Simulated assay, not measured.
Amino acid sequence: MMPTDIQTILAGYGSCVAAVSGGVDSLLLAVVAHRTLGRGAILVHAASPAVPAGDAARLRRTARDEGFAVREVDAGEMRDPRYLQNPVDRCYHCKSHLYAALAGIARDAGAAAIISGTNRDDLSDYRPGLVAAREAGVRHPFVEAGMDKAAIRAMARSMGLCFADIPASPCLGSRIHTGTVITRERLAAVDAAEELVRRRCGLPVVRCRIEGDAARIEVAPEILHDPGMRAGLEAAVAEIGRVFADRFPFLATVELDPRGYARGRAFVGKP
């Protein structure tokens, strides 16, 4: 069963183009939009090196299970030097490209709205991408329904969706310190390191932050103080060092961050 409010809001659009990254918010939006509007919901995924491979795979599984099609686009942010220089408003440049691509699809299809998985919690944070959304006239049905992250997870659980409790999964660009240039190689290094630690240590939340030529692995602080887990982590970091020496030699050092995980640590200069 789906809550009536969100169904009513989506039905009110009549048709839409939805941005779907593969995190819990956008996946739920895709499922509900498809179940409510059927072919009137065009679901679009930005195929970008900044999207974690696991997120793209999760989206493909959900699309298969739910029976909807996903259109992939190259929004073009990797060709924009304003994005690649990784300024404090990096997300604005990324989302501007994404919403321009979605606007073209909406025009061609005659879709009435472009929608995103933004929720109420996002409105209290510094998110330059929301400026791009406002400029593009993007609608946020979860915000219109008064839903925050907890409500989104609760709704996904009530619908029996397997992704209800997956950890937050921001783009890989968020792991690269503000001012450190974004490259395909740095994004690939982040994804490879995080996947290796998750696989070797069974940890749901891992971050590989890159600043210049240094990579730091962040996990929950309590794990760092567990001798058994610490040994496994140190072995995983040593393996990452060997992988990087072969595939990403521009990264000179890899180490565990002794401070542990903290949200948004690579984001420097927030107003």
Rank of each mutant, 00 (worst) to 15 (best):
138 V>M: 10
75 A>K: 06
128 P>H: 05
143 V>R: 15
70 V>P: 00
64 R>Y: 09
50 A>M: 07
146 G>N: 10
118 T>I: 15
81 P>K: 04
57 A>K: 11
146 G>L: 07
140 H>A: 14
57 A>S: 08
149 K>P: 06
67 G>E: 02
70 V>R: 01
64 R>K: 11
54 G>M: 05
94 C>V: 03
82 R>L: 12
47 A>H: 02
56 A>W: 02
140 H>L: 14
103 A>M: 09
104 G>C: 05
126 Y>K: 07
128 P>K: 08
147 M>R: 14
100 A>H: 09
58 R>Y: 02
139 R>P: 04
58 R>M: 07
102 L>A: 08
63 A>V: 10
73 V>D: 03
144 E>D: 14
70 V>L: 00
66 E>S: 05
121 D>A: 08
74 D>A: 14
94 C>I: 06
61 R>V: 00
57 A>G: 04
95 K>H: 03
85 Q>L: 14
101 A>K: 04
139 R>V: 07
135 E>T: 03
130 L>Q: 15
55 D>S: 06
130 L>E: 10
131 V>G: 10
129 G>P: 12
95 K>V: 02
73 V>T: 05
117 G>K: 04
145 A>W: 01
53 A>R: 03
145 A>H: 07
89 D>T: 09
121 D>L: 07
117 G>C: 06
49 P>S: 04
137 G>Y: 14
136 A>M: 03
108 D>R: 14
143 V>K: 13
47 A>E: 12
75 A>E: 15
84 L>Q: 06
95 K>T: 02
137 G>N: 06
80 D>M: 14
80 D>Y: 15
75 A>Y: 03
81 P>G: 08
48 S>T: 13
106 A>L: 14
61 R>L: 03
47 A>K: 04
89 D>F: 08
107 R>H: 08
73 V>S: 03
116 S>R: 10
103 A>T: 14
47 A>D: 12
102 L>Y: 07
72 E>C: 00
80 D>V: 15
53 A>L: 03
148 D>L: 08
145 A>G: 12
109 A>M: 11
47 A>N: 09
133 A>F: 13
82 R>D: 15
54 G>L: 01
143 V>W: 10
117 G>T: 09
59 L>I: 00
137 G>D: 07
113 A>D: 15
98 L>A: 05
106 A>V: 13
95 K>Q: 06
119 N>Y: 06
103 A>P: 05
67 G>Q: 06
109 A>I: 08
49 P>N: 06
61 R>C: 05
101 A>S: 15
50 A>K: 01
55 D>A: 05
69 A>Q: 08
76 G>N: 11
59 L>F: 01
137 G>R: 14
127 R>P: 11
72 E>P: 01
122 D>W: 15
83 Y>K: 11
126 Y>F: 11
99 Y>R: 03
61 R>K: 08
116 S>P: 10
128 P>Y: 05
114 I>H: 04
131 V>D: 13
77 E>H: 05
107 R>E: 14
144 E>V: 07
136 A>S: 04
137 G>A: 10
114 I>P: 00
